[in-house]
Simulated assay, not measured.
Amino acid sequence: MVFQVPTGNLDVLTCYLLANISQDELQAFKAAFELGNFAQFSPMLKIRIVRPPEDYIGQSHEYIRRKEDEAGRERAFLILDDKAMENDAVWYISYFADVQPPEDQWAVNKEVLWKMLIRTDKLATVYVNYSIGNTSLQEDLGNCGVEFPVKEGYEQPKVFDYKTDMHKAQYSQPTWVRAEPHEYELNKGGEEFGTYVASPNTLARLKDGIAEESGILNDWVTPYPAGPFRMPDGTKKEFPEGTMVLQLKLNPDFPWPPFKWPNGSL
């Protein structure tokens, strides 16, 4: 089986369950998150769904954010309340406007809590985009009809949603495999790809059976020589001479193991 880059340690966000929902509704929420998280084969994030402390029940998001800060839990968290459930969404609770000044152009004062209602199956992608700086919560709020500068307790006219069909997106998730010489084949030349005719030995694909057993959708791609790979524990994995890196796509229909939710999650 070819070597695929292992999933590293994923961030874990706490999700406070404030809505009174059935087990079926909870499972539907978890399924939507797993779908958008490509959870079985290429996860980006984990969430731990927990019951809130008693004093959080019936309180505002601002109150809960302050209590989290007082407890030293300063990172973003999630809230699943009635409004979120009604919209197939979840609240992403960030920080107060005084945490990263200056934000005068965004908020009227420092008491504004940055938060956004996000479609559940888009949560993982949103989180990754914020983590790497592709976009910001403020920019996304603007796309939801929020007017700036925002006031305390601002309303969000639309739920944030990328409008991507996440079922179709399952088939476009990339993987970078390191294939040893006995695991791939080079093209013979003359293969046509639209108006492009490939020269010999310029493309590679996995040999018959290897892609299928590895959960990969096979295709002709440009190969690149593979060097050592640094594993999450800091060690280096070496590969035989002639090993190539192939960028292919994962097969969501492969019998992947179930996604493991964090310990203590509902």
Rank of each mutant, 00 (worst) to 15 (best):
Q105E: 09
K110P: 01
Y92A: 02
I93E: 04
E103I: 07
K110V: 08
L80G: 03
V99F: 10
Y92F: 14
S94P: 02
I79H: 13
E70Q: 14
D82A: 15
L113S: 02
F96R: 01
W91D: 00
L80S: 12
N87D: 06
A71C: 05
V90Q: 05
E103C: 08
E86M: 14
I93H: 00
Y92C: 02
A89N: 07
E86I: 09
P102W: 06
A84I: 03
K110W: 06
D82E: 15
F77N: 02
E111D: 14
I93T: 07
K115M: 09
D98I: 03
A97E: 01
A71L: 11
L78P: 13
A76C: 11
K110M: 04
R75N: 14
D88V: 02
I79N: 03
R75S: 15
N109Y: 00
Q100H: 14
W91P: 02
W106R: 09
L78R: 13
F77T: 13
A84W: 01
E86P: 04
K83H: 10
A107Y: 12
E86T: 15
N109V: 09
L78G: 13
F96V: 00
W114G: 10
D104T: 08
V108T: 04
P101E: 05
Y92D: 04
P102M: 04
